[in-house]
Structures are given as C-alpha cells and as structure tokens.
Design a protein around this nucleic acid. Structure first.
Length: 804
DNA sequence: TGTGGAACA
C-alpha cells in the first residue's frame, strides 16, 4: 500500500503531471503532435500511460532507439500501471517479445516497428504511434518518419506523436504539415559553461585534447570544491585506447602531485590548494565494448570523501546516464563513421562535435544539482566552427539495406520518398546500383524474387543475398551459421600481451580452413556447438563468448524465419503459378530444401562439389560486389567493381586515386599463409593459387585490408554479377527505368542532378527556404566529409610507408 | 606498432 502511494507521489512530482489535461486535449484535437521535454520530464513513462487511460481501447506503440530503454521503460510503466509485464504493458525487441493479445501499450525499438511495417505497411495494429527520442536521428527513426507520413495519408485517423529532447524541432513539425508543438518544461539545474581561452582552431586542438583533459581534471580536483561532497567528474573522449591511456596518465599525474604535496607540506606550513590523493579517487573508463559494465563502480555512489572520475565515449552522452555528475570536461570531439559511396567503404574518423551535442554534454553536469562544464575549445570555435546539429546518420552510412526495405514497403521510386533529411544523391544511386548488381532489383528498379527472398532475413544485404543463393543450391544450414557469425563483432579474441597472442593464434589455427574465412567461421561455430556452447571452451581457445552467444541467437532467429517461410511456401506453391526464373545453376536440381545431413551427404559424392565449394559458391553470389582480383605481379588485390565502374564516380568527390583500390589479405585471414605470419607481421606473399577472392568488408589497418575473405575456385561462380556489371556499364538502363516507372514524383531525381526545380521537388524539399543555396551548401559539406575520409586513408598509407 | 563508436532488425 505504501509502495503504491510512493509511486503515486513520484509520478505527481514529475513536471509532466501538471500538463496532463493540456496534453490530452492536444491529442484529442490533433492527429499529429510534436512534444518536447528534457529527460526527467516524465514524457516517456507517463504520457503513454495517460493515453491508454484516457483513450479506451486505443492500441499504442512507442519506439525507442535502444533495447535497454525499451525494456527498462516498459518494466517501470507496467509496475506503475499495476500490471504484469506482458499484460496491458509490454515490450518487443529482437530476440525478446513480452507482449500478448491483451497488450495495449507496447514499447519497442524503432527497428522492430520498421520490421513490422515491411509485413504491414499500414501498421494497422496501432491506433497511436509515439516516436520517442526523435532528436537522436537514427536511420530507423528517419525512415519511420517518411513511412508514417505515407501511412497517415492512407489512414487519416492514425495518431502520431513525435517526442524529442532538443528545442530545435521545427523540422519535425514542418515535416508533418506544421503540426503543433507542445513543450513540457524540464527539471534540470543550471550549468555554468567555461570555454577555453586558447583560441586555436579545432583542427589544431585535435592533437592535444587528451593531455588537456588531464590538466583540466587536475584543476577541478585541486580548486573546484563544493560544499559537502565534492561532486563527480565526467570526461568526454572519443575511443577506447584514448580512454585507457587517459586513465593511466591521470593516475601517474596524481601520484606525482601527491609526492610534491608531501614534500612541500614538510617545508611550508600550509598549502592553499586542496591536496589530492589517489586512494580518495575512483578513476573509471566507460565504453560500450567494456567486458562487464561495472554497474556498482560507475552507477553506485562513492564512499565518503571519495570522488569519481569517469572517462567516457559518447555512450555517456546518449545511452547511459551517470548520477551525481557535477563537472563535465568536454574534449569537443567524437568518432564518427563516414561512408564513401564511390567505393562503398567507410572510415571511422575523429571529428568535432556539433553545437547540439556540446549542449547535451554540458547538460550532463546538471542532472542532480548545479554544475560546471569545461570546454576544451574556445567560444569562437563553438560559435563558428561547429555545425548546429550532428549530421543525421542516414547521410553518413551505406543505404543498400534501407533502400531494399523501402522497395519492400512498396516504395518503387525511392528517389521520390520523402526523407526528413534527404541522403545524398550518390549514396542513393550507389545503393540502387548495388541492389541491381546483386540481382535484388531489375533494370526498372522493381524488386525481383531474389530481392523478396532477401528482405526476409534481418541481416546485411550481402549476407541475405548469400542466404537466398544457399537455399537454392542446398547449403542453407551452413550459410546461416556463417551469416550469423558475420553479423556479430569479432569472434576471434586477441589478447594484448604478445606472448598470449601467439597462444591465441595457435588456438585459432586449428579452425582455419584453406578455402578462407567463411568456412573457418563455420568450423569455429560447429566446434563450439560440439562443446555444448561452453564458456570455458571459448576462454581456452581465445574466442569471445559474448559474441558467439549472440551469433547463436541470430542463427536460431534465421532458422525460425526459414522454417516459417518454408511452411508458407508449401501451402502456396500448389495453387500459385510458378513463374520463378528457371535457374541455370548446375546444382539446382538436387536438394532444394536442404537440411544439413542431406547436404553433407551430397557433398561427399564424388562428382558434386564439396561442401566448402557449395558454401563459397553461395557467398560469392552475395559478395558479387565485393570481388577482388589479384594483381599480376604484386601481392595485392584490386577491387574489381570499382575498377570497372569508377569513370562514373561522383563529380563532387573527384577523388579516385588508384591507391584506394589496392586491397590486402589480412594477416589474420585463413588465406594468409602460415609461414608468412611467423616471418613478418604484415608480410608480402599470398598463395599463388589465389586469383579471385570475395571479402566481407575493408578495414583501414596500415593499409586497406580485406576482413573475412574466401577463395573463388572458378570465375564462373561470379559470372552473373559480371554480366550485370557489363549491362549496367553499357546503358545505365536502370536509372532511366527507375524514372519512367516511378510516377510523376520520380522527377525529383532530375532536380537533384541538374539543380533545377519542379513543383514536385518543391514539395519534397519544403522546409528549406532556399533550395539552391541549401543544395550547394550540402555539397560543400559533403565534399569536406569525403576529403576527411580520403585524408584518413592517406594517413594510413603514409604510416605504412614509414614503417617499411 | 595498432583496427572499432554506439547502436539495431
């Protein structure tokens, strides 16, 4: 009883409580509404509950960018509502669905809703949808925006609420015909912001910000003392290495200072500065890949007279809230992915944050009481050098998967789709080109049967294409394992100490398959399976248990999808006319359904290809756009497609330096000969038998290295892709087709290319007042981004040259 | 001497 009263008191103390009537009126009167309120206003937990209480029988969906948020919020709301989780209130995330037929309020990740939309584009399960944390602008959120706008046109009664933290939300409102904006005041404490007096440009600060954070922390420790307890410190840096380094460095500096203090206190009678002692400090790193997020150390309260200093990545800006932070030290930088559509590769770069991000970081100091934010950059840099907002993710990543799901949603003319922020023309074209070359869409931009097969699988398009092929030639079970392994982070664990590295390499060697890394991954998984998915086995053999476990979940999800679908197929096959293209594949006749024992047996028969060959055949279809061919005289490879298509590369970049295209076999790859690995770290020779290989992705090591590569035994395996490359190169038929097939608004594409203006594009671009100027500004920014990517690559290459 | 930031289906 007292529990319930306490809950009630807490609820009524939230700022949103006084706005209940106003909000309900607004939702009654408007079908689309933007609500802004800082974290702590109660909007995420309270508003959806108000809605299901106020509107009887309304089915409400609330999306979150992150799984933990969906889970924890749903749990709390169920408790507050007084029901069991999964009854009236529940959540759905990948691998975990707690909802039931009685659930009326469902929290989920935005990816889940997007996935549901591919089955049911009208989203008829919901009467009201709330997109929460819209300011984070994940790709999924952005696509949902465009999708909901279309859905609303067909279901005018659907209610949509956009919830966001920042004040700069006119963009959201404009997108939905200038719908009303409702503001809930936040409940935060004032944060004093101190800028650095160093007026260097951000570019120069980049080299020295780690050292400066240490200085600043030392300053806070010795000078900034608040009454009572001192208040914890949060430092924003960019990456794991940097953070570990900073933690160590701070410890060293503090030790030195201690020594100094002891010496000076023995000579002089009193020191004005507060003395600092290492045993009264907790210095903690915080980044996502930290083995176990030490809950108590980071989130728990510190002992008396003890101070926490946390060095964190951006994870502390959005995903994780640490209590009792009083001081924030903001380096002004972040690591961001940048995608280069001309090569289809991306690079991870340290770039300045945006003004919005800086404000958010500063806000972390004022959650429990008034605080101070130290910025390591000048006010001028903040005002003039930083972008207002972080570039939305959708403009920074490859869009192949996104475009394919849009096609599945029935959006044939992707160029005419209304994006909240339009991705670059080159990125869209690159995505369409890749889909065409994979055989997922035809020259008119229409989805093929292959494409329909691909969207079933919630994995990277390269992998889903491989799975479609694997089903066709009868090695689906194995391909699913490999696809799952490729969907998780590095399963091979490599210790830091050199001696242990040798042991790890030896352990890994045991599973390496001469044909390459794909079969190797299968070997690893099957070995682990044979050991009953043992954790100890992972440790003994240097594999990452967490990642393998995730791979296992993904594998079973993929198998479920296959099972469900094959039942469906059996049901419909008899009555529908079979207009599927006749396959010319030699192995097509046998074993279409293919369970593992069958295909293993068939692999044994002398005339058929081996299982390893079947698998690589399947994957070489999926990786048709990731082909590389060996250089005739040198131990390197060339990106095959880029060399075929590069003349058509974007005019904006103009950067097609041939050095880009030189790819190397990773020393960690099964294709990299053992004796070389023991000779030199980045050896020179690759097996002579290698001619063609396919690879999963390229990473920038000391040079461009192919991560997960396998042999192609016969160039016929990739003949289909090569034929499509030739077709594509000859006529660009598909681009014309995309335009003529799309309805009128397909013209938007011409606008973007020519810089002209039509009525249709004026509609799609509403919100930017001066399209011509906005466009060129965009282009300039994009060029700058591409140049940064290019610079990073050059640096990597220079490092390599210095090394040899 | 070093590749990865953080998230999701």
């Amino acid at each position: 009883m007292s529990d319930r009263n306490e809950i009630k008191n807490q609820q009524e103390a939230l700022p949103i409580f006084d706005h209940r009537d106003g909000l309900m009126d607004a939702i009654h009167n408007h079908n689309v509404l933007v609500i802004i309120g800082e974290t702590g206003s109660g909007k995420t937990t309270q508003l959806p509950r108000y809605v299901i209480e106020e509107f009887k029988n309304t089915r409400v969906g609330v999306t979150q960018p992150r799984r933990i948020a969906a889970i924890s919020v749903a749990k709390r709301v169920a408790e507050e509502y007084g029901c069991r989780l999964g009854d009236m209130v529940g959540y759905t995330i990948r691998f975990d669905d707690t909802t039931s037929s009685r659930t009326r309020l469902k929290y989920m990740t935005d990816g889940v809703l997007l996935r549901e939309a591919t089955m049911d584009p009208l989203l008829e399960k919901y009467d009201l949808l709330i997109i929460d944390e819209a300011h984070e602008r994940t790709v999924e959120t952005d696509v949902l925006f465009g999708l909901l706008k279309r859905t609303k046109a067909k279901r005018p009664n659907l209610k949509i609420i956009i919830m966001s933290a920042t004040l700069n939300v006119t963009k959201f409102s404009d997108f939905f015909d200038e719908c009303p904006i409702y503001e809930i005041p936040g409940r935060t404490y004032p944060v004093e912001i101190l800028h650095s007096r160093d007026i260097s440009k951000l570019g120069t600060l980049k080299s020295g910000y780690v050292a400066k954070t240490i200085d600043t922390v030392m300053h806070i420790l010795s000078k900034e003392v608040r009454s009572g307890d001192a208040g914890d410190i949060l430092v924003f840096l960019t990456g794991q290495n940097e953070i570990e380094q900073a933690c160590q460095e701070l410890k060293n500096v503090v030790l030195e200072k201690e020594k100094e203090d002891r010496e000076s206190s023995s000579t002089s009678s009193s020191s004005r500065a507060k003395s600092v002692s290492l045993d009264r400090l907790q210095i903690l790193p915080l980044y996502a890949s930290l083995e176990l997020l030490d809950q108590n150390a980071i989130f728990g309260s510190t002992p008396r007279n003890c101070r926490k200093i946390i060095f964190a990545t951006n994870i502390a800006q959005t995903s994780v809230t640490i209590p009792n932070i009083c001081f924030v030290v903001d380096s002004g930088f972040v690591k961001q992915k940048m995608y280069d559509p001309t090569t289809g590769m991306d690079a991870l770069l340290v770039v300045p944050i945006s003004k919005a991000a800086a404000t958010q970081r500063a806000g972390r100091a004022g959650r429990t009481r008034a605080g101070i934010c130290f910025r390591l950059y000048s006010r001028e840099s903040f005002e003039t050098e930083m972008d207002d907002e972080t570039v939305p993710e959708i403009k920074r990543t490859g869009l192949t998967g996104t475009v394919l799901s849009l096609k599945q949603l029935g959006i044939l003319d992707v160029n005419g789709f209304e994006f909240l922020d339009r991705p670059g023309e080159e990125e869209l074209s690159a995505a369409l080109r890749e889909l065409y070359l994979m055989g997922a869409i035809d020259q008119y931009g229409r989805m093929t049967d292959v494409g329909h097969g691909m969207v079933m699988y919630p994995v990277n398009p390269l992998l889903s294409r491989s799975l479609v092929e694997a089903e066709k030639i009868g090695c689906l079970d194995q391909a699913i394992v490999i696809a799952a392994m490729l969907s998780v982070e590095e399963p091979f664990y490599m210790p830091r100490k050199e001696k242990e590295q040798e042991a790890a390499n030896l352990a890994h060697d045991h599973y390496r398959h001469p044909s390459g890394d794909h079969v190797t991954l299968l070997n690893v998984f099957e070995a682990w399976q044979d050991e009953n998915y043992s954790k100890d086995w992972c440790h003994e053999n240097y594999f990452n248990y967490r990642h393998l476990r995730l791979a296992r979940s993904i594998r079973s999800q993929l198998r479920d999808i296959v099972d469900r679908n094959s039942h469906h197929k059996k049901d419909t096959q008899k009555c529908s006319s079979n207009d599927q293209q006749e396959s010319q594949h030699p192995h097509d006749r046998k074993n279409l359904g293919g369970n593992s024992s069958d295909s293993k047996q068939s692999a044994k028969t002398s005339s058929s290809p081996s299982l390893s060959q079947l698998i690589r055949q399947a994957f070489s279809q999926g990786y048709g756009i990731h082909l590389s061919k060996k250089h005739q005289h040198r131990p390197m490879f060339y990106h095959y497609l880029a060399s075929m298509l590069s003349p058509s590369a974007g005019a904006a970049s103009g950067t097609t330096s041939s050095s880009l295209l030189a790819l190397h076999v990773s020393p960690l790859s099964a294709l990299y000969l053992d004796e070389e690995r023991s000779l030199t770290k980045y050896g020179r020779k690759v097996s002579r038998s290698l001619e063609w290989i396919f690879y999963h992705e390229v990473v920038y090591h000391v040079k461009a290295v192919m991560r997960y590569a396998s042999k192609i035994d016969d160039v016929k395996w990739v003949q289909d892709t090569m034929d499509r490359v030739k077709n594509f190169d000859r006529g660009n038929v598909w681009l014309n087709g995309e335009r003529s097939e799309g309805q009128l608004d397909g013209m938007a594409r011409d606008v973007a290319v020519d810089g002209g203006e039509t009525e249709d594009s004026a509609n799609t671009k509403r919100g930017s007042e001066n399209p011509a100027e906005g466009e060129s500004d965009e282009q300039a920014k994009k060029r700058a981004r591409l140049e940064m990517v290019e610079a990073a690559r050059k640096r990597a290459l220079v490092r390599r040259q210095n090394q040899s």
